[in-house]
Nucleic acid binder design. Sequence first.
DNA 1: CTCCAGGAGTGTA
DNA 2: TACACTCATGGA
Length: 209
Amino acid sequence: MIQRLFHTLSDIYGEQHWWPCKSGSRWEIVAGAILVQNTAWSNVERALANLETAGLMSPEGILAAPDDELRELIRPAGFFRQKCAYLKAVAEFFIAHEAEYLASDDVPVLRRRLLAVRGVGRETADDILLYVFKKPVFIIDACTRRAAERHLHLDGRLPYEELQRIFTDALPPDAELYGEYHALILALCKDSCRKAGCGEVCGKIGYPS
DNA sequence: CTCCAGGAGTGTA
DNA sequence: TACACTCATGGA
């Protein structure tokens, strides 16, 4: 079921080539992962563009910027007071451990340590492990839970790691595959399937009409 | 106008 | 463990 859904989505939406930011630098992905928390990506793009224009698209730049200035730059992404503090905490961690995270493959340990950083919860930690450091970690977000419920007949309210294990048990540990799958699920999420009058897409997937 | 988007932290029972 | 609450902007 899980593999079939992937191939169906892949046929419909094609290659997604994520993470969607312009430079694709590791830090830009980290910053995006923090800024996108409970926020539309269109708002994150403005904040990232502001950081770029201000010359602060680096962990060192984030740490050097006064809170007042940083908050103004990221304001479009919402929750700017929290996210200002989160970005600084993650910047410090990133500077200290980037090389180590590139070298190590001990995913459970890397994940635990990321979760100890202020502002990094399960989903953000997995965003970073997968898209920044290319570790085979499957991301569970609100869209994944909805897709799991509607198209895989799973309980979307299952605990994070439990739902995650269901996906990883059904798939080979391939970071490329996990990244595509997550991107495809978000493509599905933005599509019409969660609205009334679901069209051709839902028919192919088997969404009950 | 209301609703909500690729969450996380804190407090309560 | 399981909820309720807070944080904030911009688009539909």
